[in-house]
Simulated assay, not measured.
Amino acid sequence: MEFELLFPGSVLYVSGEIDAPTSSAVLLKDGERTIIVDPGGFPSLKALESALGKAGVAPEDVTDVLLTHFHLDHAFNTMFFKNATIRLHKNYATRNYKAFGPIIGQMYSMVIESWSRVEPFEAGMLWDTIEIVETPFHSREHVSFLVKTINAGNVLIFGDLCDRQFRFYEMRKGMRNDAASKLALELYDRADMIVFSHDLPIIKG
């Protein structure tokens, strides 16, 4: 797989219940497939369109979209890739999205209804290059990806298992000792580059 970070994610909170986080988006290519991991939410639409344009990728060229989990800050923009197969953990189908609220629930339904093809997965390998690791600490369908790439070594896409650098440093310094931290550190040891969903990446040197 050839790796490219389309844009890093961020976290923006305003007072009260107003927030606008958006995830890091990754582009992967292997000659047969053009893959986007976590294309992000509404606030990153301009960044997504700009980055894809610079990469020479049109929305209709995208063959697959991989999701670490189905939250709108990671998955809203899936609706713009009409030719893509959406791939996410099978547990996404067990959630009652209507319970998220009369407006937010409708938005989740709109996103799901926009998908032309869905291929749920479990832990294992995709195309012999992407290892799917079940990390259901953030949501029941949450996974992390460890990707073998030709230009960046082993790239770990944490999702929201470890969303920002400071959380990772807390784990490494022993400030957290839970199961999520243990798994995150084990995955880190296998990676050359770490993509955080809401922060800049780290390249191990």
Rank of each mutant, 00 (worst) to 15 (best):
M107D: 09
E122N: 12
A84R: 00
F81H: 04
T85D: 03
F121T: 11
E134I: 05
S116K: 15
S109T: 15
T129P: 01
S114N: 05
V57T: 10
D128R: 11
L72C: 09
A93S: 15
F80R: 11
V118M: 11
V111M: 04
T129G: 09
I130L: 11
I104W: 14
R95P: 04
Y92I: 12
A84Q: 02
E134K: 06
N96A: 07
A93L: 12
N83V: 01
F70Q: 00
M110I: 05
L66I: 08
F70Y: 10
F81A: 04
V57N: 07
F100G: 02
R87H: 12
A99I: 08
G105C: 06
E134F: 06
G101Q: 10
P102A: 08
A75R: 00
L88V: 12
Y108H: 10
V133C: 01
D61F: 08
M79L: 13
E122L: 10
Q106T: 11
F100L: 13
E131I: 02
E119R: 14
R95F: 13
I130W: 00
I112Y: 11
G101N: 11
D61E: 14
A84I: 04
D128L: 02
N77K: 00
N77Q: 09
E131W: 03
N83L: 02
A99G: 10
T129K: 14
K90N: 14
H74Y: 03
E119F: 09
G101K: 09
S116A: 12
G124I: 03
D73F: 10
E119G: 09
D64F: 01
V65C: 09
N91T: 11
V57K: 03
I103D: 12
D128P: 04
V57W: 08
W115M: 09
E119Q: 14
N96V: 07
N96F: 07
T129E: 14
I112V: 12
P102V: 06
M79N: 08
L126A: 12
T78H: 01
A58C: 12
E113K: 15
F121Q: 05
